[in-house]
Nucleic acid binder design. Sequence first.
DNA 1: GTGCTAAGAGTTTTT
DNA 2: CTCTTAGCAC
Length: 641
Amino acid sequence: MNYLENLNKEQKEAVLYTEGPLLIFAGAGSGKTRVLTYRVAYLIEEKGVYPTNILAITFTNKAANEMKERVGGLIGNTEGMWISTFHSACVRILRQNIESLKDFKKNFVIFDTKDQETLIKECLKELNLNDKNFPIRGVATEISRAKDMLIGPDKYYDRNMHDIRKRKLADIYSLYQKKLQKNNALDFDDILNKTVELLEQNPDVLQYYRNKFRYILVDEYQDTNFSQYTLIRLLAGEHKNLCVVGDDDQSIYSWRGADIGNILNFEKDFPGAKVIKLEQNYRSTQVILDAANSVIKNNFARKSKKLWTQKSTGRLIIYHYAVDEREEADFIMNEVERVIAEERRDLGDFAILYRTNAQSRVLEEACMSHGLPYRIVGGFKFYERKEVKDIVSYLRVIQNPDEDLSLKRIINIPKRGIGNAALDALTQYAASKADSLFSALLEVDNISRVSPKAKKGIKEFVSIMSELMGIAETEKVSKLVKEVLERTGYLDELEKGEDEESRTRAENIKELLSATFEFEALNENALLPDFLEQIALMSDIDTLEEGKSALVMMTLHSAKGLEYPFVFISGMEEGVFPSQRSYFEANQMEEERRLMYVGITRAMERLYLTAAFERTLYGSTTYNTVSQFIREIPKELLIKV
DNA sequence: GTGCTAAGAGTTTTT
DNA sequence: CTCTTAGCAC
């Protein structure tokens, strides 16, 4: 196989070592994706492994698609292989098997963060708890952390009996789970947890998938949480043909439950595991690597490794200390323009990174005033916009009429004269019959407390919905969305509005429609559940189109796995980066440092670090000192301009 | 039941 | 500072 010639000694070893547990420590830019894709190709072409016996897990859909493409490039096609994120793979397993868990039906929907918050709010109300003592986001995080650890409501209660507040939290958690079940909905965490539950409780299902996935690869293993780890152990526990790739220095998701211990303990978990370190970097210049190495060596909790390259020393790192954030942004834009003019580079060669999304605004304004085309990853989420979510809610009710949450959202959109009074009566009626809100709508004639006006509206709504449900059976998603827009009069109403806002909303709706066409072009026989799943599990970075000639801006987190010839890291100030909130704990500060390490190693040719003396963020002005991470870079690597 | 205004709360990172 | 929510008047 001639393509093995393209690999260095360690990479080759990693590709050829196919049987038994293998841990690959892959430093930034060390050709990790190349190893993974060659490994898959090698398994199939040389070892005669069936594509259907391969499971490759990545963290984003973007990474999964990239891997599919590259494997396809090596061996022709990737049919039969499962190359996907944890979440997509689990949804796929659950769609087949969730009914053996009894609590859920095949047509379940996925609740995003916003839906979760709405549901928790309902729980608080029912339990007479106020959101002062139980801030919704805080409760959501607490529940999510418990779920990451596979701790259910009962176990959570048992563990925290001594703590009055946490006992209440256990009540919320428990009610929250009941409500999810009633809505026939899973949140992000449950997608993983229910899969674990399914496999643990059904030996035959587990055996099926163990036999099916003879070879398992997991990318970004340092970012796995306990439930993902458990899932992998379940699937790989028998044959142990498990290859995990990761870099403890790039673990930046502990706040999401990721446990760096999973990668550090791999050799204990899988005795006899082979360990390979990839330290040769193919991405960056020596200067950039020296900076990265010297920053990360301040961390204690890590496996020692050192990136090196055969590339030239490269240019020094440019550090600019600006007066304020506007001047900082201006400096960046001027520099971009200068380099483009003098060195004939493309705008797409530049990326600007920052710690928080809130920092993007000034940069965006600067791009506009300089007339530079730009793309921002994240921040605004297309599918969380009001108008888009409205239409998606229609689709969700069509797929799963049990889902009260979306139903409540859309029942009076556009206005049908169904107000709170009617909704209360309906909710109570549904509760008394322990049935869904939708079923109460069908029996509205039996509910005396609903006004005639509301009854008329409800009947109208029900008839529209049943028509749409019929359409969903036979038609494609794009056609369905069109019908939703038409029959509900949603788009009409927006187009009547003369103001700017109505116009952008109408545009967003049209964008949603074109998203359905795109979806159909890529997924031939895909149906409504597939579409809803895709949009629910889509991450910001998945929407980044590559090869476009535009300046890219994103958070440091989003930038992981990407590379750009020119990288700017802005807001290099204490309190901004590292973030204020990381001061309390040493391991949080180490995580910030890893984030810095990730940021630095995105740069191929040149790195810029910028800070501002005065910064206005969230309406108040602060004066911060320069980030400690700049001081951790040897002076001789920096030029101050 | 709808629509407006005023006050209040929350701002790290996200599958 | 901005977005959301709650309360009030029609």
